[in-house]
Design a protein around this nucleic acid. Structure first.
Lengths: 230, 230
DNA sequence: CTGAGGCTTCGGGGCTGGCCGAAACAGGCG
DNA sequence: CGCCTGTTTCGGCCAGCCCCGAAGCCTCAG
């Protein structure tokens, strides 16, 4: 019995896939919320969630009478995004996503920046000498080290992550954006400085995907600090 | 209906997963061979293959009374390898692969070099100034351009590929190896020069995975040309 | 032209697995 | 202490789909 089949079959059920997609932004959701997202009853959801946790695709965190579920790790998020890259062409005939275009400009993938903004940042950081290739991903250049510190990026926290900086394929842009501890810390900084703002989901959005937009100040700052035209 | 679920469900059936894994090395196999690999009859295999082709996971090439099936593209190979990365930890308790260790040193992924050799080469090329980051992957530096040409790598053929050079996650090493046209051309050169040799599958191997090994001459040459210690 | 081999389509059987309702368990709250 | 809510377990129903056998189409060999 191939374990490839076992993992893929877990993702392959519509209800479970809906739950996993709902968790892609990195938020933890309760069992009840996930049941509603998938459009099934609580019992069915419970059994699905149990299977996903046992396979390591999800992690649970019990808190009071709620149980919060989140993706099992960055590898899981990466696998889902890679599969979405395969899935997209098939749907592109009809509107590719209920809230399609809005997602492409900026959103959170796991805990790091994705969409056009994320890809543009990746191009800048790797092309302008902030980062240089390293085994398994990217390392800071001396220049990047200085610039990140100056900006207030917590490099120590970034280095404490399992991976410092690596590529994560962006399902809407089909080009990599920055993942790993550095991706997370940069994104945290951009949100802290209000250069990016979260867009609250509309009431008709079943999934709580976290879209992001540039503030006017952020637009100026990103141009000045990173040379982003966006 | 989530298209993520549809794609994953296709990979999630044990018979189809076995076929896809058999095609991972990049070889094209006939419908009958794939039926044997999956351990099912010809009618069942035919219906599976039809579904996989319709979804774009496979391509067909009819030739005489045979129909040759191959993976639909590098994205498909990448998705399968990413999923295998997720699947591996679960199996690592028991022998992770029927022919585990032998696969780790060198093998073909799609048409490019994977395993320890592939990862080591990736580290060298990206770390020693042969390649530099470029949007969506890697580009040759002037020095790399000269060295590749000198070695006899067909850069024109590599540039004709949909992607010139990009990362492909290695499921056994969990670090990227070189994919895209350049990865294919380099691998072709290494085989042509007999620096790498294919190891013929043993008769008890159901899957025709293409393992690779260094020849003694190849070991010297790789050390001299690329600085590989392997 | 005829036979053989590879592949596909069709029809039917069997079984896995996803869903729901009812009931039980657990934690918070008045 | 009792109620409410969130979650899990159990039993049973049903659909989907995975498989095989039989039959037909196409290609190649002699």
């Amino acid at each position: 019995m191939s374990s490839l089949a076992a993992i893929a079959a877990l993702i392959g059920d519509p209800s479970r896939a809906a739950m996993l997609q709902a968790l892609l932004p990195g938020e933890a959701l309760t069992a009840g919320e996930l049941a509603r997202v998938a459009g099934i009853g609580a019992p069915a959801a419970s059994s699905h969630l149990k299977a996903l946790v046992e396979a390591g695709l999800l992690r649970v965190h019990a808190q009071g009478r709620h149980r919060y579920f989140a993706l099992g790790g960055e590898e899981v998020a990466a696998a889902l995004e890679t599969l979405l890259c395969l899935a997209r062409p098939a749907v592109s005939v009809r509107p590719p996503w209920p809230h399609g275009e809005a997602f492409r400009t900026g959103r959170l993938c796991w805990h790091h920046l994705a969409g056009r903004l994320g890809v543009a940042l990746h191009v800048r950081l790797t092309g302008d000498g902030w980062l240089e290739p390293a085994p398994g991903g990217w390392a800071t250049t001396p220049r990047g080290e200085a610039r990140f510190t100056e900006l207030g990026v917590d490099l120590a926290a970034a280095r404490a992550a399992p991976r410092f900086a690596c590529d994560c394929m962006d399902w809407s842009e089909r080009r990599p954006h920055l993942s790993g501890g550095l991706g997370r810390e940069i994104t945290a900084l951009l949100l802290r400085r209000r250069w990016l703002n979260r867009i609250e989901p509309r009431s008709d959005e079943a999934l709580r995907r976290r879209r992001l937009e540039c503030t006017p100040e952020g637009r100026r700052a990103l141009a000045a600090e990173f040379g982003l035209a966006a």
